[in-house]
């Protein structure tokens, strides 16, 4: 078991290196660098100004050298002021040092966000905290709702309840966040006026039902259908097994059979599905946070991508790889614990 986890962690590190390398390659393409330079200097910068800004800040250095700096195995160099010849901080708003130092991911420095004018570490932490709150509420509504729907549908296969719940779950998987977001905003915010179509106040004034219900609903609805269908399939399988028939023939009531015998075994498979749902939620977070103007991880990712904020984008990439691979690992290990018939080799 331990060697399995260690091997998976090794793969995770390798994936992180490959992925950041690819992202690094893309953000350092000439058109993207120009985009960054224009947003950092001013809109009407001439080509020479852009070139000199990129040169001065080391964006034209050797590609591997730059990647090494970001990792923290090559020293970061301060800028040299061309007029005075003295070393000065690369990005003043991030307190970049004036002497060459090793300062990268390995040293715990995620770099400097050029768009938000803050160290990436602080900005990322704020964003993740905000998204964590959103995720918590999404999970808290999505998982119970999906499990209940799935169990009710799978309890009696082919019944009218099963049919209608199955169609409802298919419909919910056909509704991506940007569609359900529009539908819910129109219904609850524009027509009924019960809920706010903007969650901008949630960060400053705290989470309330009024400003938070719409994003949570929007995100939950897309996942519910999928988890419910998996739960239903698992429930149907359990309900046709021998021990359920035995229990029913012994005279245990249907309700008791479902609650005591079927549920526990039917909920093993959905556990994996729920864990693997996290990567999907990551995409959902980006759409929902931008639609409802909630300043979390997804909002940050889009801002970073739109402005080619190199360090922030790389950090976002790292975070998502960790989320995706960690949930995969948890789902595998957890499955082995829940289902004694399977042992991880």
């Amino acid at each position: 078991m331990l060697s399995f986890i260690l091997r998976r962690l090794g793969v995770m590190v390798l994936t992180m290196i490959c992925l950041t390398f690819i992202v690094f390659f893309f953000v350092n393409l000439e058109p993207n660098l120009r985009k960054l330079a224009i947003s950092q200097t001013n809109m009407r910068a001439t080509d020479e100004m852009i070139e000199s800004w990129l040169d001065r800040n080391g964006y034209h250095d050797n590609f591997l050298l730059q990647y090494g700096r970001w990792i923290g195995v090559v020293q970061k160099q301060p800028n040299i002021n061309p007029e005075t010849g003295q070393a000065e901080s690369r990005f003043r708003y991030c307190d970049d040092p004036v002497e060459p130092v090793y300062s990268g991911i390995l040293q715990g420095n995620f770099g400097c966000s050029t768009n938000f004018k803050k160290p990436v570490g602080t900005r990322l932490w704020d964003g993740l905290k905000a998204t964590g709150i959103l995720m918590f509420w999404v999970m808290a509504t999505m998982v119970p709702a999906a499990l209940i729907i799935g169990v009710l549908a799978g309890m009696r296969e082919g019944s009218r309840l099963d049919r209608s719940l199955s169609v409802a779950s298919i419909a919910s998987t056909a509704t991506p966040e940007y569609v359900s977001g529009i539908l819910f905003s129109v219904l609850f915010a524009s027509w009924l006026g019960w809920l706010s179509a903007s969650s901008a106040t949630a960060t400053s004034k705290g989470v309330t039902f009024y400003n938070f219900a719409l994003p949570v609903m929007t995100m939950a609805i897309y996942g519910i259908g999928y988890i419910a269908r998996m739960t239903r399939a698992s429930m149907v399988e359990v309900m046709t097994s021998q021990y359920i028939r035995t229990a029913l023939l012994k005279g245990v009531s249907f309700r008791q059979t479902v609650m005591k015998h079927a549920l526990r075994n039917a909920l093993i498979a959905p556990f994996t599905v729920i864990m693997l749902q996290f990567p999907w939620l990551l995409t959902g977070v980006v759409i929902v946070e931008n639609m409802f103007r909630y300043q979390g991880f997804g909002y940050m990712l889009v801002q970073a991508a739109a402005n080619n904020d190199i360090d922030l984008l790389l950090a976002c990439g790292l975070v998502s790889v960790v989320v995706v691979l960690a949930t995969q690992l948890i789902s595998d290990v957890g499955y082995a614990f829940l289902n004694p018939r399977i042992r991880v080799s």
């Binding site: 985009k35 889009v302 739109a306």
Partner: peptide, 22 residues
């Protein structure tokens, strides 16, 4: 590796006007 990429980040990297020129 590709599945670990957030889809939106992938799209922002691959489908921007700048990349179209390359």
């Amino acid at each position: 590796l590709v599945l670990a990429f957030p889809v939106i980040l992938l799209f922002y990297l691959l489908v921007t006007p700048g990349i179209e020129e390359t």
